[in-house]
Structures are given as structure tokens and as C-alpha cells.
């Protein structure tokens, strides 16, 4: 079981060859999986959009907009029915004020700004506490905390502690506050998107984008 001598040349050569072979193999695997990785991401996004909006036929082209108070842009996914009427818009929004940082949410809005659904996409909130936001604000049997069917323009989307209309998750006020902040951010940016001349002249969107 003789081993190669540890001369400087042998060592550098070996390390170089090993790294080169490894990198090449990886490049190959990367090419193989590239398409499937993109597909998996797209499927997850599609699933999220479908779960927050009522039934639709086609997705229009997505667009991005910077919210007034944020550094990162939100992504908008308009959805249309068979007759090209706007069914609603799914908005990928975020907040950085979560208990453990970033929370990413897909929120669905009807053309008049009523929330049709939401899905929490990404978060690091405490399991069993903040993580309850996945289901807490959708609970139709508890109108105090349910936000589906409400309009951030007409109800106060803040936790009751801050004078708003929404019941926070028990023992998770910070997460609840952050969650609502993300939803309100989506709503406000959605409103300003609608008020822009290129999209619609009428603040209450009458359907479709030209």
C-alpha cells in the first residue's frame, strides 16, 4: 500500500486534479438539475398564487414595483378569467420586522382590494408561536383575527394593541405586527399601482391591464 511521495509538486498537482475533476463533475450535475430546480421553484410559486386567488384561467405578465417604504420591490401576478376580466392580483410581499427577520408572504387581492387569501412563503419565526400565522389569520370561525374578505382600506390592519382591528396571535405580537405590515405594504403598493396612468385611470380597477 505504497503512497505517493509528498513532494510539493505531487501535492499541488494532486489537489489541483482532484478539485478540477470535482468541479467538472459538479458542472455536469448542475446542468442536469438546472432545469428541474427552476421548474420546482416555478411550481411552488404557481401553487402559492393559486391558493390565494379565486379560480382563474390565465396569468398575465408579472410586474414589480417598489413600495414607498421599502428597499426591495414587490412582485405582482395579475390573474384573468376566460373573458380577460381581472380576477385578482397575487402580490409577493415581505417584512423584515419579523421576530427572526424576514417573512415572505403571497397575498391575494380582488380588484377592489379585498383580501382573497394568503400563504406564508418563507419565515424563521418561532415554531408553535409565530409560525401559527400560517393559519391564524385565515380562521373563518374567528372574525376577530380573520383577515380574509376584509379590505385594508376600510378596516384597520393593525393588532388590537396598536389600536387596530385584528387580534394578534397569542404571545406572538411581534410576528403578528410584522405579518400585518407585509399585508398592508402589499395593499398600499397595489393601490398606487392601480392609480398609475399606464395601468388604469379609475382608482377602483375596472378590470384588465392594457
Amino acid at each position: 500500500m505504497a503512497q505517493k511521495e509528498s513532494t510539493f509538486l505531487n501535492m499541488t498537482l494532486t489537489l489541483f486534479v482532484v478539485t478540477f475533476v470535482a468541479a467538472t463533475v459538479l458542472g455536469f450535475v448542475h446542468d442536469l438539475t438546472k432545469a428541474d430546480i427552476a421548474l420546482a421553484k416555478q411550481k411552488a410559486q404557481q401553487k402559492a398564487i393559486e391558493s390565494v386567488l379565486p379560480a382563474f384561467d390565465t396569468l398575465g405578465e408579472s410586474y414589480k414595483m417598489l413600495p414607498e417604504d421599502g428597499a426591495d420591490s414587490l412582485e405582482f401576478f395579475p390573474a384573468y378569467d376566460a373573458s380577460q376580466q381581472l380576477v385578482g392580483v397575487a402580490v409577493k410581499t415581505y417584512t423584515k420586522s419579523g421576530f427572526s427577520g424576514l417573512i415572505s408572504i403571497m397575498a391575494g387581492f380582488s380588484p377592489d382590494g379585498i383580501i382573497t387569501g394568503y400563504e406564508v412563503l418563507e419565515h424563521k419565526e418561532t415554531p408553535g408561536l409565530g409560525s401559527k400565522m400560517n393559519a391564524w389569520f385565515k380562521d373563518q370561525s374567528k372574525p376577530g383575527q380573520n383577515i380574509i374578505g376584509k379590505n385594508p382600506g376600510t378596516s384597520k390592519f393593525e393588532v388590537k394593541k396598536d389600536g387596530g382591528d385584528v387580534d394578534a396571535i397569542t404571545a406572538s405580537t411581534i410576528t403578528s405586527r410584522a405579518f400585518l405590515e407585509a399585508v398592508v405594504r402589499a395593499y398600499q403598493t397595489y393601490q398606487s399601482a392601480q392609480e398609475q396612468p399606464a395601468i388604469s385611470n379609475n382608482p377602483t380597477n375596472e378590470g384588465g391591464q392594457s
Binding site: T19, A22, A23, L26, G27, H30
Partner: peptide
Amino acid sequence: QFLQTIFFIL
């Protein structure tokens, strides 16, 4: 980017 792990650990 997929070579991140290798390069970082080296």
C-alpha cells in the same frame, strides 16, 4: 454558485 461549497471549504 454551485461551486460555493467546494471553494469556501478549501
